[in-house]
Amino acid sequence: MSSTQALLAPSLPSQLINLLAAVMLLIAFAMLAQRRVLTLINLFAVQGLILTASTLLVAWTTSQPHLYWSALITLVLKVLVLPLILHRLIRKLNVKWDVETLIKIPTTMIVGIVLVILSFNLALPISALSGTVARGTLGIAIAIVLLAFLMMITRSKAVPQVIGFLAMENGLFFAATSATYGMPMVVELGIALDVLIGMVILGVFFFQIRERFDSLDIRHLEKLKED
């Protein structure tokens, strides 16, 4: 038994990537369960950091130079710039202690588990075809995307929704890295640019909402309904 196990044991970098992927999934769940906006932002930054680490690891193992750039973009954008913007935003908007009371966390968690199972199933045929070091983690990447999506649906405040959106982008980057060693450079730059512009626009937008409603509660934004 031990000899077969030794044969099947994946290489060390691959193990480390798996570990990082697992931690990213854990963070996705932690974000789902988190009530405080401030902690949410920090969790998002940590997720970005782990994404950077795993991208670096893949880049180093497979010597794909463009992945170093991709890791750099992630580091600058997702770990430094975006959390900084978000921190500034919530300080200026003074929503630091906004606590959500609306969602039932255990229910969300159960739905999250179902989503994870779903995405693992979805990933199986794809990762079977992939030849990358990190192919196993594709399921986790899809799960992160879906969990972020779930977070966006279940939150009623604007900032958590946006963090969900960004976490979804994290998952997609991770998917790109794990399935295909990242997208072509020009596309990745474009995506990064879009995310950055999106954040700036959102920043402007938050102030508009705030100015109009005195709060960032999205429940104010439910007037437009079909009658």
Partner: peptide
Amino acid sequence: LAMLIHLLLETP
């Protein structure tokens, strides 16, 4: 999650 991750990542 531990069980799921085992099924995904650790079953070759």
